[in-house]
Design a protein around this nucleic acid. Structure first.
Lengths: 137, 137
DNA sequence: TTGACATATTCCCATTACGGTATATATTGG
DNA sequence: CCAATATATACCGTAATGGGAATATGTCAA
């Protein structure tokens, strides 16, 4: 089994940079149009071949990240927040790892009352440098 | 060009379900160990072949989602929140799409469509169902 | 109906990812 | 040095990906 099919969950769908662009474009154009954007407007903004836009929209649709509606001969796409919230929530499980990543050195405090959080807190003691290239778009 | 190399950004790294499991396991085991977990402990918990665990850790390391430190012959891995925060922040850009109901948006659009450009609507603007099965792990 | 318009789908291809197995590298101990 | 432990890396095969081009489907207009 190679890779997990990207059309399976929002994580995979959003892993593709272009697909993130589509979502951003959708959000941007949607402001002036009740959040519903026809494909051609996306094509115009992104300047990609139309089939490519359609295909990415198809993936986003399959995982439920966007919704579609017909209006005449065009399809109006809109962002469906639920799937993105899934990702947002999942990453939130680790928020302790960035809220105080570097301060925890002196944080030896006896805040021992925490016990049912399920997730640890703090950072790594003297970790050595890791490549660490974190980029989003 | 197939997909963007998964070792490029946190989004791709986290797109793989197993890798999400690794991070969760890392978070869980880290509680009792200063957030630093040797590979073998992960292997024991996940019950995967060791090379698989190492490879996934390698990817996570390359994108900066985890940090490593040597202690004797073992390597202690710990979560690096920065990359996860990147994802968290990106999804947050869309929070308005889940904080207030999207059904409301559709309603609004429907109303507006009736008198958009004077085009006779004919009432054929029906929304098409989107699969919307979005789940993560 | 015919044609223009809007969008989706199909086919092909180069590339990449993942899993499995075997092996390499590093570290500690005798 | 040799063996054992801990982990990483290399190699292979399969499956799935995204892009491009061509085409299909659906809808409106005359």
């Amino acid at each position: 089994m190679p890779r997990a099919p990207t059309t399976l969950d929002p994580f995979n769908a959003v892993a593709e940079p272009k697909r993130r662009e589509v979502l951003s474009a959708l959000a941007r154009l949607g402001v002036d149009r009740q959040n519903e954007v026809p494909v051609n407007d996306l094509v115009d903004l992104l300047r990609w071949p139309q089939p490519q836009v359609s295909k990415h929209l198809g993936v986003l649709r399959e995982v439920g990240l966007v919704a579609v509606r017909r209006r005449g001969r065009e399809r109006l796409y809109s962002i469906n927040g639920a799937g993105l919230k899934t990702i947002h929530d999942w990453t939130a499980m680790f928020d302790k790892f960035w809220t105080h990543q570097l301060d925890r050195i002196k944080q030896h405090a006896e805040t021992a009352a925490k016990s049912s959080t399920g997730l640890p807190d703090g950072g790594s003691a003297d970790a050595e440098r890791t490549p660490g290239s974190a980029n989003a778009d």
